[in-house]
Design a protein around this nucleic acid. Structure first.
Lengths: 197, 197
DNA sequence: CGGACAGGTTATCAGTGTTAACCTGTCCGA
DNA sequence: TCGGACAGGTTAACACTGATAACCTGTCCG
């Protein structure tokens, strides 16, 4: 008894349903207990169905990452538009804060980002690096504007990213309370970095 | 209860063998594909045997974390002794650099530390926080020495930890080359933080 | 001596990823 | 209009996993 081909369910194709259910799954159980069977179940579909859309579990997760990645890029673009007339240094901060907000709101994403490189293959590495592309480019641009030497540039990028990840991590841990005050402190810490050679 | 059964195998009890094999497993397959059966196999023991030593998989992993935690504390203590006559601020840097080295050398550990809080229960959170105890205490001490306000103290701690995690992460990613030069840069970035109020 | 029990064993369960073989609408070219 | 290709679902099966129960056995101590 084949269920409706197309939109029977609000216009979402199974592929999309799987990804959305997958995100919920990731939120609820974490990457470790991610079960494609349970997701298939939740979508009211046989356990083999997902394999018509994704080669295996890894690719399934990769597709989810890709999806969320796109969400982030959309959000990033909005920030860029909104702050198009601000100086580069300021834009970096705007993007950075939005990034932390995004990571905090999407814990599953962050958990994937932070997993050891051993836990995933290179495909994920590519996505991971794409994620941080814009902020890297911005830092690059700023360093160019100020005439910062190549070496410091790399370090600046590193420091900014460290602070971003660290903040998201500790906000999640509860080691640092997630509020405006602390966000401001993080922002200032990043900004300060650019005062130096 | 009687401790230490018989040293059938070079003096190591099964408990220890399991933990050591578990570490290897973690190194090879990552947390995601951690299989207690395979470990039991590797130890030449039935698949149920590990459950005589650990309640379940989670506790098994927790025991491994505990074990590595102890390794780190031993190493930390050595650094503390070696730098007992240095000023606090300097000690913080020494510990910090040792910490990064430790994380880089023990990727399994770092991957566990960085997992989202959703992926593990609170037991891990306790271990995680214990891990960073000394460096937190040191930062506290320094802040006291300098008369830094409570609020900044928390932020300082955060920044130092962020940089540590971030460094370990990116050294592993390959985004930042793991060498003396970059280690020095990280060290300086941390040190700079203490120049400020 | 005899029982308690730590610490192994085997057998079994439910749940997982993954594949093969099959079924069945839909669409497109002859 | 037919008929096959095929996308996308199905069921059945496989090997593997975590976990538990029931059993066995050597060691220790009252």
């Amino acid at each position: 008894m084949p269920e409706a081909r197309q939109p029977a369910d609000g216009g979402r194709t199974l592929h999309d349903q799987l990804i959305e259910a997958g995100i919920q799954e990731l939120n609820k159980y974490g990457v470790q207990n991610f079960s494609v069977r349970r997701i298939a179940d939740r979508c009211g579909v046989s356990c083999a169905a997902p394999y018509k859309h994704f080669k295996d579990k890894q690719e399934f997760i990769a597709a989810i990452i890709e999806y969320i990645n796109n969400l982030w890029e959309k959000r990033q673009r909005r920030v860029l538009e909104r702050s198009s007339m601000l100086p580069t240094r300021r834009v970096i901060l705007e993007i950075s804060m939005e990034y932390i907000r995004f990571l905090v709101e999407n814990p599953y994403f962050r958990s994937i980002l932070m997993l050891s490189s051993q836990d995933f293959d290179s495909e994920y590495a590519a996505l991971r690096s794409r994620l941080s592309r814009i902020s890297r480019e911005l830092v690059d641009r700023y360093c160019l504007e100020v005439g910062m030497p190549e070496k410091s540039k790399k370090i600046k990028t590193f420091i900014v990213r460290s602070l971003l990840f660290g903040a998201a991590l500790m906000f999640d841990n509860g080691e640092l309370e997630y509020n405006e005050e602390n966000m401001k402190a993080v922002s200032e810490a990043i900004d300060r970095e650019f005062d130096l050679p």
